[in-house]
Nucleic acid binder design. Sequence first.
DNA 1: GGCGTGTGTAAGAAAAATTTGACATCACCG
DNA 2: CGGTGATGTCAAATTTTTCTTACACACGCC
Lengths: 72, 72
Amino acid sequence: MAKARIRNRVRELREARGLTQAELAARSGCTRQTIIMLEKEKYVPSLSLAFAVAAVLGDRVEEVFQPEGSSG
Amino acid sequence: MAKARIRNRVRELREARGLTQAELAARSGCTRQTIIMLEKEKYVPSLSLAFAVAAVLGDRVEEVFQPEGSSG
DNA sequence: GGCGTGTGTAAGAAAAATTTGACATCACCG
DNA sequence: CGGTGATGTCAAATTTTTCTTACACACGCC
């Protein structure tokens, strides 16, 4: 598959907003575990979660998540 | 979960580009089934797939997929 | 009528995402 | 020292996504 590795700035953005993992998880409707895994790039989230997280972080999906080799 | 239903314009955009489902599938690195399911909104794709499809369609993820209740 | 193409549906299995629960570490506070 | 909040890890279980395979229908062509 074209499962390009996807980088994300969740942690960076989360801390910039002064949110804890638990806070972000609660607001984006997932568990803390999921946020941890996301920050550690253990896997690629679903588009749903990506939208939810991006919304909480106040950025667009394209800003928070970027396929490997995307212009910033 | 905050699994907001996500609408997509895959079909619309795909046809606008003169691509068949099989073509889009091959180019985005998934199977025809996946494209069919996507167009019929049977489920929300992974962010990987969303990026791949959007790239093939020549649009941004936010243009192709939109969480319910997004400005369009 | 038969053939090739594009689309749609279904079932079962595999792979990946997400949840739940338990526990360890570190920093801060009293 | 003891308690609390934030982060990280592990493992098992559940849900969702994706693949594979097989079949059906409509359309244009010869």
